[in-house]
Design a protein around this nucleic acid. Structure first.
Length: 574
RNA sequence: GGGGCUGUAGCUCAGUUGGAUAGAGCAGCGACCUUCUAAGUCGUUAGUCGCCCGUUCGAGUCGGGCCAGCCCCGCCA
């Protein structure tokens, strides 16, 4: 559907065109900066040059020549130097926008751009028998937001959790469990114990080669489908996924599939032979399969000299499977920036092998997380942060704030609010800025309850709901004449609400959830101004109260829709 | 040596088809709660947009060259 803002833009272009003064191709509009009292501008420079008149003259002529149709969303047009500025008709915009949001409710902003197209999004990808750490956290949170965004844009989105459940190191995992037994725990505690067993085993193997042999034997048994090895492996997968699922539930993450690396095991020989047949790869003397001079990328390997496969081999197989299985128009990888080269090589190789022509292979690279002293987080440094503990810590801190700010809430609601606020803060920390930036783990900033923070957005929503709750108690009408909303604070809020569909489009086009975060933040600010300046329940008249209540309801819906795209819950009270 | 990302206020960041006086938050200073949630609102201090050339009516934005930080460059993932 065309939302009000798009219709307004179309009308602006149409009225300029109707003057017959400017060729259609030269009618380009721009959004004025916030300090300009207009909603859409036509910079006359280019057209003026073409027509050989000074830009201010053209702008003035157009301003005089333009006639605004009846019932137009355009309020007024005026020349400002070389710019032709258009303003929205506040009342008609108010009516249109509130009607749209009321109709769309928490699905406001949805579009059909992607109808009939599938997108595969690869995200989260925890390693089996290990805890999820910062890298997986970023991938999970960013990936889920992109899933939400593309679904809202009408795409058929397939999420795939590419589990690290295979490979050389898994023999060590199994051998260490065979030696030390299965930890008697659940969740991160169990995985932490497995990690410790793994480390001990790997360390001991340095002096005792027979341990290495034992690990290799387990690895082989697993690949050969030995029942016992397979059972142990499955136990690890189940344990890890149970722990992951608890975290996913808290984060509002739902991933459609979890094929994992192991799924592709049988397809790997085919991938290698096909690459050789296509002549994009060759087998060097040592036996390794090499790809050289591909799109001027550095040389890389598809098979080890000992015959073993690599990350690249499995990734190629994964692309081929996804193409065949889902027929996507794009495959999106939410993976850390350090793997940018690997991704470019993978994409180039896939295309060179003749696959995925016309399919966009996209790497959404996210930056690295550093600790407060600027060190990268790592297990070895001992400053690693794990998902479950991160969420628990965030919720505990949020709980303290809830106790202080809202002691009157019932116990279970306090807990629920703390959960939403704490988890929301963690999510927002990964989404409020461009994902490709490195970020510094800073508890103070992450759990900030002021300014551009998840809490502020949730608080704004809760304030809306609070007003609506009281209105319901008083039996007040929540639907009124939107054309009464002419206060600058009301108009400002409405105009901004109208921009969610546009923000959604941009977020999708740029793979950038922060565009949504920005929109949410500005919405909360606009609402804050409105809240201060325009009494709702005590409005001057019943009609105005009804109209303002409708605006508050719309704001709540839109804000909840925006937060939903980010994967952040919006509590009713806090 | 080659390549990728980043460089905008004291700090953290927006600023994407080149357009009007470069915007927020935090921190600092000041004001506002007997009125719908002060987890709020308003005011104020603060910037040679890393540096230098170029393209043009116009460059934070585009091109080239430097500088700095992070990361990557065959048998891990």
């Amino acid at each position: 559907m065309d939302y009000a803002l798009e219709r307004f833009t179309e009308e602006v272009k149409a009225v300029i065109a109707a003057t017959g003064r400017v060729p259609l191709a030269l009618i380009e509009t721009a959004t004025p900066k916030p300090n300009i009292p207009a909603d859409l501008a036509f910079p006359a420079f280019r057209a003026a040059k073409e027509l050989k008149v000074p830009p201010p003259q053209l702008a003035a002529e157009l301003a005089a020549a333009i006639s605004i149709p009846e019932r137009s969303l355009i309020g007024k047009v005026e020349a400002a130097g070389p710019f032709l500025n258009f303003s929205m008709h506040p009342q008609r915009m108010a009516e249109a926008v509130l009607a749209e949001i009321t109709a769309g409710a928490e699905g406001y902003g949805r579009q059909a751009d992607g109808a009939g197209k599938a997108i595969v999004i690869d995200y989260s990808a925890p390693n089996i028998a290990k805890r999820m750490h910062v890298g997986h956290i970023r991938s999970t949170i960013i990936g889920q937001s992109l899933v939400n965004i593309f679904r809202a844009l009408g795409y058929s989105v397939v999420g795939d959790n590419h589990l690290g459940d295979w490979g050389k190191q898994f023999g060590v995992v199994l051998a260490s469990i065979a030696q030390d037994g299965r930890p008697d725990a659940e969740g991160e505690a169990a995985l932490e114990a497995l990690e410790a067993q793994y480390s001990r085993y790997a360390a001991a193997a340095k002096d005792r080669p027979e341990l290495d042999d034992e690990a290799r034997r387990w690895s082989l048994l697993l690949e050969q489908g030995d029942a016992h090895a397979r059972d142990l492996w499955q136990w690890c997968v189940d344990l890890t996924m149970r722990a992951a699922q608890r975290n996913y539930d808290r984060l509002g993450v739902h991933i459609d599939h979890a094929y994992g690396e192991s799924f592709y095991e049988t397809m790997l020989p085919g991938v290698i032979s096909e690459a050789l047949e296509h002549g994009v790869a060759f087998r060097e003397e040592g036996g390794a399969v090499v790809i050289e001079n591909l799109s001027s990328l550095p040389t890389f390997l598809l098979q080890r000299s000992d015959g073993g496969t690599l990350y690249m081999t499995r990734d190629v197989a994964t692309v081929l499977f996804r193409l065949k299985e889902f027929h996507p128009s794009r495959i999106v990888y939410v993976i850390g920036e350090p793997q940018a080269l690997h991704m470019r090589q993978l994409f180039a190789l896939t295309k060179a092998m003749g696959y995925g022509q016309g399919v966009d292979l996209v790497h959404v690279a996210f930056g690295t997380v550093f600790d407060a002293s600027g060190q990268p987080l790592s297990t070895r440094r001992g400053n690693m942060v794990y998902l479950e503990s991160l969420l628990d810590e965030a919720v505990a801190r949020a709980r303290a704030v809830v106790e202080k700010k809202s002691p009157e809430l019932p116990e279970d609601e306090k807990a629920a609010v703390a959960e939403s606020v704490g988890v929301g803060a963690v999510v927002y920390n990964d989404l409020y800025q461009d994902t490709k930036r490195n970020i510094t783990l800073d508890w103070e900033r992450m759990l900030a309850t002021e300014g551009n923070s998840a809490t502020y957005l949730q608080y704004s929503h809760a304030r809306c709901r609070s007003i609506l709750r009281r209105a319901a108690e008083e039996g007040a009408a929540v639907q009124g004449d939107a054309s009464l909303l002419t206060h600058p604070a009301e108009t400002g809020l409405i105009k901004h609400l109208a921009r969610l569909p546009e923000a959604l489009r941009e977020a999708g086009a740029r793979y950038a959830p922060f565009v949504i975060a920005d929109w949410c933040y500005t919405t909360a600010r606009e609402f804050g101004v409105f809240f201060e300046q325009c009494p709702v329940l005590k409005a001057e008249s019943a009609d105005l109260r009804a109209a303002r209540l409708a605006l508050v309801a719309a704001t709540a819906h839109a804000l909840k829709a925006g937060l939903g795209l980010l994967g952040i819950r919006a509590p009713e009270r806090m």
